[in-house]
Design a protein around this nucleic acid. Structure first.
Length: 260
DNA sequence: GAGTATGTTATATG
DNA sequence: GCATATAACATACT
């Protein structure tokens, strides 16, 4: 499910369903998804608390419960579902939050790379994890300055949550494609102009995806994510897309329009 | 069986 | 201590 746009779209969908509701009970079905808390601590954090608001920083989701916040990270395959009545449509439900209106918020996650936890404040959480600024909050100038201090391939820099929070494998490919920058290019060797362009494109790409509700077919023509696969044709020049591995992840790009 | 997958983090290395 | 690179985590699907 999860890069910044997916988490933001989920947040917007959950707000009308959850805000104002009280969590009567939490049932942890697999404790491995808990981060730095055990079941009883999670219970103490959320039970009999009302959801005041739902917040996001990067890929991280926060349920503001007034006295503290429930933290949710979806990992690679996590999802939050609202089910009415008796539940059990989710084959990999790891935790259930039973709400006061009879609905249940289900945390479903096959691969269990996601995590649930508690925190005192969003600020503390960001500090503790060393997360960078949210990708939507950073302007191109700040991004450019920040990126200049790194010697890794730009693709690895974009995916590093300590530098910029919210961009992952797919959207880093899209932003680099739109900015016509080769993913292997070392960050501090890209011109200021190129970095500012990339900074603009990161935000633009994320906003377009949120607008499209993360359905890739609804993204503008000319977007890589509509056809992001080695061997497919570049939506700009009909060249053949290629792929390489950077930082353990597959990068798809057009060798013609993204030269070094 | 092999290869791949929207992520983070512990560990190793320079 | 810092910057960077890689392995490991668990499961589903082609």
């Amino acid at each position: 499910m999860p890069e910044l746009p997916e988490v933001e779209v989920l947040r917007r969908r959950l707000i009308p369903a959850c805000v104002g509701r009280r969590i009567n009970e939490v049932v942890v079905k697999d404790g491995r998804v808990l981060s730095e808390v055990d079941s009883s601590e999670l219970q103490a954090c959320v039970e009999n608390k009302s959801v005041v608001n739902i917040l996001r920083h990067g890929k991280q989701l926060f349920f503001d419960l007034g006295s503290g916040l429930l933290t949710v990270h979806l990992g690679m395959t996590g999802e939050l579902l609202i089910v009415q009545g008796c539940e059990e449509l989710a084959p990999h439900a790891r935790a259930l939050f039973k709400m006061d209106d009879g609905s249940t918020l289900v945390y479903n996650d096959p691969r269990m790379f996601g995590r649930l936890g508690c925190t005192r404040s969003v600020k503390d959480f960001i500090m503790d994890r060393g997360l960078g600024p949210d990708a939507l909050s950073l302007d191109e100038k700040e991004f450019s300055v920040c990126a200049k201090s790194h010697r890794r391939p730009i693709k690895a820099v974009l995916m590093d949550q300590h530098i910029l929070a919210g961009v992952g494998n797919l959207y880093s490919d899209e932003a680099l494609f739109q900015a016509r920058i080769n993913p292997t290019k070392v960050a501090n060797k890209i011109s200021s102009k190129g970095l500012r362009c990339l900074g603009r494109e990161i935000k633009e790409v994320l906003l377009q995806s949120i607008y499209a509700e993360t359905v890739f077919e609804r993204l503008p023509k000319g977007y890589l994510l509509r056809c992001r696969r080695r061997g497919e044709l570049c939506p700009r020049n009909n060249g053949v897309l290629t792929s390489i591995e950077i930082g353990g992840r597959t990068s798809v790009y057009c060798p013609t329009c993204q030269r070094n």
